[in-house]
Simulated assay, not measured.
Amino acid sequence: MRTNRKLRAAGAVTAGLALALGVATSASAATAIPIDGHGTAYWQADPSDGTPGDALRVCDTNADGLAVRAVLTTYSNVTHRREVDTAGHSAGYCTPWKTGDLPEGTKVMISTQYGKGGEWVAADVAYLTA
């Protein structure tokens, strides 16, 4: 009976540790923002595993002839703007990370779009923090 309690306690501690590690690992991953089935935008607030912080990129995942784009602006200063798009590339292409230091805690808006020939259709908007 005593052995069962010890095993259960050890199992609970192990499960709690695994959960805590899982949460810590997923928190450091880039935030994915779907682009209506045409691709995905990624926002990386803090540097992690070789990925720079305050970084934005998009990946075109659908061979439909449309490019994808993401535009980042800050709430407080519209001059903090960055844009990435896959125009001119085939599906399966991901842009390089576009970076620029933002003060910690800066609120950002990332709008995503898809299109071709310079004509973009709005897909989604994400409100995040640097």
Rank of each mutant, 00 (worst) to 15 (best):
G65S: 11
V71M: 00
V78E: 11
D60Q: 06
S76D: 13
R57Y: 04
T61A: 07
T73Y: 05
L56I: 01
N77Y: 03
A87S: 15
V68E: 07
A70E: 14
T61K: 02
G65V: 09
V78N: 15
V58D: 03
D85C: 09
T73P: 00
A87N: 13
V71E: 01
R82K: 15
R81A: 13
R82D: 10
A55N: 02
R82Q: 15
V71N: 00
D85G: 08
T61E: 11
L56H: 03
L56C: 04
C59L: 03
V84Q: 07
A87T: 12
L56S: 05
D85S: 14
V68R: 03
R57H: 08
T79H: 10
A70W: 09
T61H: 00
S76C: 03
L66P: 00
T79Q: 14
T86Q: 08
T74F: 01
T73H: 11
V58N: 02
R69W: 03
L56Y: 01
T74A: 10
S76Q: 15
C59R: 14
R82F: 11
G88P: 14
E83Q: 15
T74K: 13
H80Q: 14
G65A: 12
V84C: 15
A63V: 08
A70Q: 08
V84G: 13
A70C: 12
D60A: 09
L66G: 00
A63I: 07
L56W: 01
T86L: 12
V68S: 01
L72F: 01
G88S: 10
H89F: 07
H80K: 07
V68P: 01
A63Q: 10
V84K: 00
L56G: 05
N77E: 12
G65Q: 06
D60Y: 02
Y75I: 09
H80G: 03
G88K: 13
T74S: 10
G65F: 07
A63T: 08
R57C: 10
L56Q: 02
V78K: 13
D85P: 02
A55M: 05
T79P: 03
A55T: 01
G88M: 10
A67W: 06
D64E: 07
A67F: 06
T79D: 13
R69Y: 05
S76L: 13
H80C: 03
V84M: 12
R81S: 15
V68L: 07
S90G: 12
H89C: 06
N62M: 11
D64V: 05
V68Q: 01
R69D: 08
D85K: 00
A67M: 08
V58F: 01
A63N: 15
E83S: 14
G65K: 06
A67P: 07
D60C: 01
L66K: 15
V78Q: 14
N62F: 12
L72W: 02
L72D: 04
N62T: 06
R69K: 13
V58Y: 02
S76K: 13
S76T: 11
T86N: 06
L56D: 00
A55V: 09
E83R: 10
S90C: 04
T79W: 05
Y75M: 07
L56R: 00
S76Y: 03
D60M: 03
A70T: 11
S90M: 09
V58L: 05
N62H: 09
A63S: 15
R57P: 01
R81K: 09
E83Y: 07
V58M: 04
